[in-house]
Simulated assay, not measured.
Amino acid sequence: MSDCASCAVRGRAICASLDAGELAELGRMGRRQRVKSGHTLIWEGDDAPLVANVLKGVLKLVVAASDGREQIVGIVFASDFIGRPFGKESLYRVTAMTDAEVCIYNRNSFDAFAGAHPHLQQKLLRRTLDELDRARYWMMLLGRKSAAEKVASFLLEMSDRLAGQAGPTRRDDGFELPFGRQQIADILGLTIETTCRQLTRMRADGLLDLPSRREVVIHDRRAVEAMAG
């Protein structure tokens, strides 16, 4: 890759800490790859020879039980980092929820580069701690919250992550979900019927509007925050 300096997510990605020379060196190590919706980039339990920055799209992190049941344990968006630096086996499967584009690096080469650039290691550490905080919150959400609290919490999280990406309404308080109701249900550990019922109730109560199947406009954020607990 030779266009790192013009990358749309550079200012938010882990490589934001690199100067022009370091960025050029890292760019020579990487390559862009498009990932179709439903395609798996990294398999759970396998040796993971790559790490990547997400440039576009949304991917999910999935853990499977021995009986085949699956749980989505994380969602990654543009500028997020995926993979396991300084490790080998992946603890989860990484699958695209939408068409996506990633910047891929060989893990061993990336580990060597990061080892020589402490400020990049610090950026990775901060990103890892943020993910740990998010994972702890997600444990509480899945294990202790009611269906209404789960849906409200999810919408607030998506509002923060997808701010300014609304569809035709172009509302400041609106955003467009990159996945459908069934995927929302899978993420929250709910049935699709329960998920749809909660969204319909929130719309009937005037908390939000659903102009299309994937667009959400929050009218009363304080009420949604109260519902989220």
Score class of each variant (00 low, 15 high):
3 D>H: 12
7 C>V: 00
8 A>Y: 05
8 A>F: 00
14 I>G: 01
17 S>G: 01
17 S>L: 06
19 D>H: 02
19 D>N: 14
23 L>H: 11
24 A>P: 15
24 A>K: 14
24 A>R: 15
25 E>K: 12
25 E>W: 11
25 E>T: 14
30 G>W: 02
32 R>Y: 14
33 Q>E: 14
42 I>W: 13
42 I>V: 15
48 A>Y: 05
49 P>E: 09
52 A>R: 02
54 V>E: 03
54 V>S: 01
57 G>R: 01
71 Q>P: 15
78 A>G: 06
83 G>Q: 03
85 P>V: 00
92 Y>A: 06
92 Y>S: 03
94 V>K: 06
96 A>Y: 11
97 M>G: 06
102 V>S: 04
105 Y>F: 13
110 F>S: 00
110 F>L: 07
110 F>Y: 11
110 F>N: 03
111 D>M: 00
115 G>K: 13
120 L>N: 01
122 Q>H: 08
127 R>A: 12
128 T>S: 15
132 L>K: 15
132 L>A: 07
133 D>P: 02
135 A>G: 04
136 R>Q: 09
136 R>V: 01
138 W>H: 02
141 L>S: 00
141 L>V: 06
148 A>E: 06
151 V>D: 01
151 V>M: 06
151 V>E: 09
157 E>M: 02
157 E>L: 04
158 M>A: 05
158 M>P: 13
161 R>M: 03
165 Q>L: 06
167 G>D: 15
173 D>I: 13
175 F>V: 03
175 F>M: 08
177 L>C: 04
177 L>V: 07
180 G>P: 10
180 G>S: 10
184 I>A: 07
187 I>Y: 15
196 C>G: 10
197 R>S: 07
199 L>K: 08
200 T>S: 10
204 A>D: 12
208 L>K: 10
212 S>T: 10
212 S>N: 04
213 R>H: 07
213 R>I: 07
213 R>A: 10
215 E>V: 03
217 V>Y: 08
219 H>D: 01
219 H>R: 08
222 R>S: 11
225 E>V: 07
225 E>S: 07
225 E>Q: 14
227 M>W: 03
227 M>T: 10
